[in-house]
Design a protein around this nucleic acid. Structure first.
Lengths: 234, 234
DNA sequence: GTCGATATTTTGGCATGCCAAAATGATCCG
DNA sequence: CGGATCATTTTGGCATGCCAAAATATCGAC
């Protein structure tokens, strides 16, 4: 590190100025996780005072966090401004899924032009590994691999705004996709499609990648719809 | 209106419960306009106290509004959390524009399936009218028609999440697109492309609509890049 | 005169408090 | 009893105040 005065140095050690985050952002992340994992049930009302106390913070940063989650559509407000955990219906989920499909298709295209060979190889390896472990993997582990594969594609596109938008829509759909993923019905198809996608990417065939991703997201939409109509099983 | 008790009625008249909005949301909208119209200059630091006072509100709702605009990427924060009006570079604008293109392409596809004949006719009429008025229109009026045409397509898709995402990205790009639109360089091409889009939509040809919108947004990207490299003129 | 240390001011983050409006519960009349 | 009315409590919205950290100004040494 560069030379600094004794005072400046001691200050630097105690208070890192880089990458500081606000409580609100931190809380938004925590709440996001709680919502995705259904520790906060969909449709459940959110009482600011209680939740703030439970989190050990005051209402001000909590309210800012709720604003963030409102933009993410993970928290909605009643007509009388009472906040609650979002609980989108099938139609809304399908609409979001189509947008996600368009975003991933674009990501696939851009990844063909922007990704390094190493990245594409890693994606291909991930798809292969998923296929091999398919039977042994626990639902959550399988699902995480699935999500990581998709996120990897978007990262490879090297388009930060796209990455953020993708993360946003992905979060909205996380729960629904996880639920439908637990029912192993179409795992085989999912895995095939992943391999198709990886192949198209490795060939740097933008059109094929986009097409493969679109049909894959279409499959996801079918799965979500099916899971909603026929809840039980797992 | 339905029968109500005298008391309930008088209360209803004074305090409309429907569609209530918060100050923060209101302020976010106002600030959005101020940013888009450059009454708040790109890159300018935002002092919460001053701005709150200027708006006649306290810092709390202003801060919540800034959170909203941060998600919209119209306000950014320095490493030390000092808020300022966003000032995206050309690369970022191009990246956002590609996302916007993907969103509009999807909107075009869905509009082909969802829009009413009347909506499509209105879009075609709008494109035609724009072409006719092309020479007489003031830059701002021309630009507003342009934006309205695009928004009309997205509305016709009847996909609320898509509509919101589109509005978000559109806002990010508003300034840049307006600036490039003022330089009338490629008005003719813009108008042609609008007619192409309208034609594809009227034919309810999803693939053609998507393709036309994509190339159109590509043109927009070129225009933005050109305007940045060669500022002056108008 | 310039650079660096230190004092001062400014700024954003968070907590607290108050208020109006909505939700809830008690009450009274039919 | 049932339903409307009124009292009570709860809740979210906003303003205010305090604090720590960053920015700026001040000063001093070389």
């Amino acid at each position: 590190m560069t030379d600094r005065s004794p005072l400046a140095e001691s200050l630097a050690e105690l208070g890192p100025i880089e990458g500081r985050r606000t409580l609100a952002a931190e809380i938004a992340d925590r709440l996001r996780d709680l919502i995705l994992l259904e520790r906060l049930a969909p449709g459940a009302p959110i009482r600011e005072r209680d939740l703030a106390e439970a989190l050990g913070i005051s209402r001000t940063p909590l309210r800012e966090a709720l604003r963030i989650l409102e933009m993410d559509e993970l928290v909605t407000y009643s007509a009388t401004r009472r906040p609650m955990v979002a609980d989108p219906d099938v139609t809304t989920l399908a609409q979001n899924l189509r947008v996600l499909g368009a975003l991933e298709a674009l990501a696939g295209e851009e990844a063909c032009a922007q990704a390094t060979d190493a990245e594409l190889a890693a994606l291909a390896a991930a798809a292969r590994e998923m296929a091999e472990r398919s039977d042994s993997d626990e639902p959550l582990a399988f699902f995480r691999r699935d999500m990581a594969f998709h996120s990897g594609i978007v990262e490879a596109a090297r388009n930060p705004p796209l990455l953020r938008a993708h993360a946003q829509f992905n979060a909205r759909l996380w729960r629904a996709r996880f639920i439908s993923s637990r029912r192993r019905l179409k795992r085989a198809r999912t895995l095939e499609e992943h391999l198709d996608i990886a192949a198209a990417l490795s060939a740097r065939d933008a059109a094929a990648s986009a097409a493969a991703l679109r049909t894959h997201l279409g499959t996801a939409a079918d799965n979500v719809a099916a899971a909603r109509h026929d809840p039980g099983e797992d």
